[in-house]
Simulated scan of single mutants.
Amino acid sequence: MNRNLATATAQRRSNGAEWIGGEPSVLVFDVNETLIDFESMNPLFEKIFGDKRVMREWLGHLIMYSMTVTLSGLYEGYFTLGQGLLKMVGDIHGVRVSDADIEEIRQAMLTMPAHPDVEEGLSRMKDAGFRLVTLTNSPSNPGGQSPLEHAGLAHFFERQFTIETVRAYKPAQQVYHLVAQELDVPPSSCFMVAAHVWDTVGAQSAGYTAGLVTRPGNAPLPVASLPQPNLIAPDLPALAGQLIQVWRS
């Protein structure tokens, strides 16, 4: 066990929470940004808004308002919420967002490519004997390919979980508990893999361990009173190496 993980485990035990942070058998992957590349939509936002940076603005609103909906005790589907926010961002920038624009972005969200490092990382983790599943805020796509299927990644995963089942967005604890219950494992056997600290904090608060993938624009949150990722890596192959070193060597 590496020093950081040993220290975190000791701290949890000193607080009387020995059930948290066991050896993971299930790796639970966030999808958006962690596995698939949202930056691929930059040219589309450049065309509609005249500035590719609006994609990040819209995505930030989508994350914030999905949390707002859940905290308010409400629920609305991810695509419907995203479409409304496109029009809101259009109003902010004085740009009329047409129905055709919205449909083009919806299709783009279903067909984003994987990050180039993902397949290698997933292969190493699967070969090391970890179970792999996904947990995403994005909805399923009845009658069509899921984003993972389109990106050629679906075959790595035994299950694809979405928040639709519990009608609450991450980082609500019931979302993470859903996965553990459906797989019939304790939360302490689950290890969240995400590119966002809000996702790792949510998962760890529900009893998971977690690894942060520091995709561009993401970094650890150095606040001592909050859960810190057990592992931190710049990409999936590097995270796979750490997982294997800590729990498979």
Rank of each mutant, 00 (worst) to 15 (best):
T162Y: 03
V97C: 00
L62Y: 01
E120L: 15
G129C: 09
E119M: 14
E119N: 12
N230H: 13
E104Q: 11
Y208L: 10
F29A: 03
N2Y: 10
Q145N: 12
H177R: 12
G143H: 11
Q173W: 00
T68M: 08
P43D: 09
R13T: 06
S188M: 08
I163M: 08
G21W: 04
L148Y: 03
L243W: 06
L132V: 07
P139D: 10
N4F: 15
V133Y: 06
L44G: 02
P216L: 10
L132E: 04
E46Q: 14
S140E: 12
V89M: 02
E104G: 06
G22D: 10
D51K: 04
H177G: 03
V97I: 04
R96L: 02
P147W: 05
I244E: 04
H115E: 10
Y176W: 00
H196C: 08
A219Q: 13
E46I: 04
R106T: 09
P142M: 11
Q160V: 12
F161E: 00
I232E: 02
A154R: 14
T34Q: 06
A6E: 14
G82N: 02
H155D: 15
G84R: 11
M41R: 10
E149P: 03
D199I: 11
G22R: 05
D117P: 07
G22Q: 12
L135C: 06
P186H: 09
Q242G: 10
F191V: 07
I232C: 08
I48D: 02
L239N: 05
V54E: 03
G90H: 01
G217R: 04
D37Q: 12
L71K: 06
D51F: 06
P237E: 03
H196L: 04
S14N: 11
E149A: 15
D99C: 03
S14P: 01
R13D: 09
T70F: 01
V54D: 01
V175K: 00
E120I: 14
D199V: 01
A233K: 05
F49K: 02
P147H: 07
V201P: 00
S140A: 14
S189V: 03
H61F: 11
N2K: 13
I48K: 00
A17S: 09
A128D: 04
V26T: 04
A17L: 13
G94H: 00
G152A: 11
D37T: 05
V223D: 11
I105Y: 04
L35N: 01
F161K: 03
N15C: 13
G16L: 10
D235V: 10
T214W: 02
S146C: 07
N2V: 05
P227C: 05
V69E: 05
